[in-house]
């Protein structure tokens, strides 16, 4: 059998093997992270929905969310995404039965601005202007989402 010299480093383990191991470990940790993040929020959304609390709350927020062509319930998706992360946002959004246009608007807003608290800590490692950048993301996200909603909704 012929082998490329590059395939066998000094350690004896070929790089692809090592990569497979690394990504396997990362995937396992990631699945745990997902289960811990998604299941509780999915259940909480269901309870909010069943108890009628979500409908009551979204009644107040409907006029505001209407600016983005979104139903009032989308406020819960936005808060989950902005404060926690995108997985939390999907867990809240999935049971709502949104249209593809509404999902796209939410995806654009949250794609630009999400996990603001945690990610501001990372940005701070790069630059001292973490605050301005967080505000920039929020503004850009809401602005871009508004424009998109005008185009597609």
């Amino acid at each position: 059998m012929k082998t490329d010299a590059r395939d066998i480093p000094a350690g004896g383990v070929p790089p692809w093997r090592e990569a497979l191991g690394h990504s396997g470990r990362r995937t396992r940790a990631f699945v745990w992270f997902l289960l811990k993040n998604i299941l509780p929020l999915y259940l909480a959304t269901e309870i909010l929905k069943q108890s009628g609390l979500l409908a009551w709350l979204s009644g107040f927020l409907a006029p505001i969310m209407g600016l983005w062509g979104l139903p009032g319930e989308a406020a819960a998706v936005l808060s989950a995404g902005l404060l926690v992360n995108l997985y939390a946002a999907t867990a809240v959004a999935a049971p709502l039965g949104l249209s593809w246009q509404q999902v796209s608007v939410l995806g654009l807003i949250l794609g630009i601005a999400h996990s603001l608290v945690v990610e501001a800590a990372v940005v701070r490692e790069l630059t001292q202007r973490a605050w301005s950048i967080t505000l920039l993301r929020l503004g850009l996200g809401l602005g871009a989402g508004w424009l998109l909603s005008l185009i597609i909704i």
């Binding site: 999907t90 249209s99 246009q101 871009a144």
Partner: peptide, 16 residues
């Protein structure tokens, strides 16, 4: 992950 919910990749990624 937003495509999983039915979103459009073009409109989510393009503007970003």
């Amino acid at each position: 992950i937003f495509m999983l919910l039915g979103g459009s990749a073009f409109w989510i990624l393009g503007p970003r």
